[in-house]
Nucleic acid binder design. Structure first.
Lengths: 76, 76
DNA sequence: TTGTGACTTGGAGTCCGTT
DNA sequence: CAACGGACTCCAAGTCACA
């Protein structure tokens, strides 16, 4: 699976878990509304800069956004 | 700590653990030697595209390259 | 074997909108 | 609230010569 897709799914899941809209997340992360939308659709390879900002808002470690779905349950 | 630095250190450590030169890693990942050098110096925020290629060669999960030093030992 | 400055180009990321 | 498009800007991507 493409890492963009993995990231996209993790991002969407984490955002919805926080009950944030794309717009609210974008605003708090200092990114663009349409960019978050694009990321969740797997359009771009995000840079660490964007990943770091997003992870901060979602209160996650950046690595969590790259993790496979079945890896979260094994951690720690 | 800046995520670029975290990534840079993990990359260098993982590469040296595999006993690969920057040149050898670059070749196998289809990247330029000086680009690997730049990443290991924390010159810029790598994109998922580059991270994915590098992780593949180093036989790691991309998330491992973003992990804090003290997190690796706790995994699994 | 690696670091670095200088360079060009492609894509990350923004901003406007409509559906 | 989200998907999607076009037209931008700017930095990472990628290469080179040289130390």
């Amino acid at each position: 699976m493409d890492i963009r897709q993995r990231f996209a799914r993790n991002l969407r899941a984490a955002r919805e878990a926080k009950a944030l809209s794309q717009e609210a997340l974008a605003y708090e992360a200092g990114l663009d509304r349409t960019y978050i939308s694009s990321l969740e659709r797997g359009r771009y390879y995000a840079s660490l800069k964007a990943i770091e900002k997003i992870a901060k808002v979602l209160e996650l470690d950046p690595a969590d956004l790259l993790r496979k779905d079945d890896e979260g349950s094994r951690k720690q």
